[in-house]
């Protein structure tokens, strides 16, 4: 392996992997923190629902759809002023977290919305009959009951963040994707490209199995043997 890939290249790959992990982890965290309440609100603010606010629901829906329909690479450059405002700079790995988190938020929100809507409406009715407040219903009923779906949803979001993170090289974000483009493609080093892809595959596999294991563990709707 050492005569095929130089230690320098290996170092680059390790460094880029760490950059990718850093960007994706922070963006996933922010995306979840923002997307979870947003998704819950979207799922519970329709007509006749817990936090009925039909107009707000509709406006948020449009904003979420607009963000989701903007191609990620365009989003990255379009929000450069916002990135500079938040991160202090528009270039680099930390700065890249801003567009990543911004794209992950509506994605997670929609997934959360779907998972929450899956919860049997009878449980909401039963909780109301017990005298639960809407917030108690969210905390004690909706989130725990939707948990398996929420975990799988966040897993999906992380995988999609891994793929998005390949594009932040456009603003000097670094990471595996950037390495692949610059070395593998622009410097004609197909073995680097191959390694980048292999590392990404391993990461996606790891995230996916971790997510599935976790989702299984919190799922009480299936009989345990």
């Amino acid at each position: 392996m050492s005569d095929w890939i130089s230690p320098a290249i290996l170092n680059l790959i390790v460094g880029s992997t760490l950059e990718t992990l850093y960007m994706v982890a922070v963006a996933a965290l922010i995306g979840t923190l923002a997307g979870l309440p947003l998704g819950i609100f979207l799922a519970t603010s329709g007509k006749g629902e817990l936090f009925e606010a039909v107009a707000v629901n509709r406006v948020l829906g449009v904003v979420v759809n607009a963000t989701r329909s903007t191609p990620f690479i365009i989003l990255v450059v379009a929000i450069i002023p916002l990135t500079r405002l938040i991160a202090g700079t528009s270039i680099g790995t930390t700065a890249a977290i801003v567009p990543l988190a911004l794209a992950a938020t509506p994605f997670i929100a929609r997934i959360v919305e779907a998972a929450i809507r899956e919860v049997d409406q009878g449980l909401v009715e039963a909780s109301l009959a017990m005298g639960a407040t809407p917030l108690q219903i969210v905390r004690k009923v909706l989130i725990p009951e939707a948990l398996p779906g929420l975990v799988l949803g966040v897993t999906l979001a992380i995988v999609s963040l891994l793929s998005n993170s390949a594009m932040v090289g456009a603003v000097g974000g670094g990471g595996l994707g950037d390495l692949g483009i610059r070395y593998g493609y622009q410097r004609f080093m197909p073995e680097v490209m191959l390694l980048v892809v292999v590392v990404l595959i391993i990461l996606v596999q790891a995230v996916q199995s971790l997510g599935e294991t976790l989702a299984r563990r919190v799922n009480r709707r299936v009989r345990r043997l």
């Binding site: 049997d120 009878g122 449980l123 039963a126 725990p144 709707r221």
Partner: peptide, 13 residues
């Protein structure tokens, strides 16, 4: 108190 046809128990509890 109220009880229901489909029980409406929380599957997570």
């Amino acid at each position: 108190g109220m009880i229901f046809q489909h029980f409406n128990l929380l599957s997570s509890r």
